[in-house]
Design a protein around this nucleic acid. Sequence first.
DNA 1: GTGCCACTTCAAGTCAACTTGAGGTCAAGG
DNA 2: CCTTGACCTCAAGTTGACTTGAAGTGGCAC
Lengths: 170, 170
Amino acid sequence: MALDITEVAKRSGVPASTLRFYEEKGLIVSVGRRGLRRLFDPRVLERLALIALGRAAGFSLDEIGRMFAPDGRPRIDRRVLASKAEELDRTIQKLSAVRDGLQHAAVCPAPSHMECPTFRRLLRGAASGTIGAPGNKLASGRREPEYSKSAKPGKAPRFRRRNKNNRGKP
Amino acid sequence: MALDITEVAKRSGVPASTLRFYEEKGLIVSVGRRGLRRLFDPRVLERLALIALGRAAGFSLDEIGRMFAPDGRPRIDRRVLASKAEELDRTIQKLSAVRDGLQHAAVCPAPSHMECPTFRRLLRGAASGTIGAPGNKLASGRREPEYSKSAKPGKAPRFRRRNKNNRGKP
DNA sequence: GTGCCACTTCAAGTCAACTTGAGGTCAAGG
DNA sequence: CCTTGACCTCAAGTTGACTTGAAGTGGCAC
């Protein structure tokens, strides 16, 4: 009944090294060994799907880990889901704006992009931090850098860009 | 006329350390110094906006760097823009699906998410790799890991998940 | 003229999510 | 019984985009 690690890897598409890594992180558990070889309960596949989904939604592995009750059953706070959905939605808005701008710029007849009003508008959007780069901060819970040392608390903290990712209330 | 680095930081919202970093990477140039202190042409602000936009669109700093002609003027290939826009669009599709699933799960009356058909469908999507996690690979040009050593070419390469991010032609 | 402090440089650290490498072990096949 | 290959462990490396720390410097206010 139990699947060995290669079987899980094959069926889930998740590399064995990642499975070991996930186990170490407590995201999945193996139910035993055959020799050295890990064995997993087939339900690990569902668990992995859940993890993939969480990642797709922008949760970090740690966040995902916290979504499983100590007994292993997923106990996902609906408020967390809702707020992540909202966050995701804001991200989608921004990306859509960028996509539209890109699309326009791609066909825009202006000799240089700099002369295209649409492009310039997009640029202002990006400049004013309404957009925020994707990649590592896109939909993920992102720590603010500290700046506690270099920017002393008394010293007009208006320096640092606020809400790069629309973190505060709009 | 020239702005010193703090002025640029203040106006652009980009920390001075990042400005130095960008200069080192060749993304911006300083036009001189006052003492040690860098001075920038005001147009650096537009350049920074362009960089922010590029990041928002999912370009890496290196890609962005390549978008500036050696003379410094942006010379952005429209085909690149179009393809990035497409990529972005695919990303948006996926994120939208996830968002909808999340939204549903947040209000779904099923006692456990596992009993909600919508949630399970979403899960299958995530499992089959149709979704792909955001974060660092979301809209960015992402190198495929190598696997040349551990998975020898003769050995049924069906092991590794293909197109986690819909990389091949649809 | 002299002190301060914000700047400078350069090297190294951080973060997340994995991957890779070296060296070890073991079940199974011949 | 012995080889072999696939797994094991543990430590270290990777990637991108920065940040941070230590040690140095110089313009400007006094």
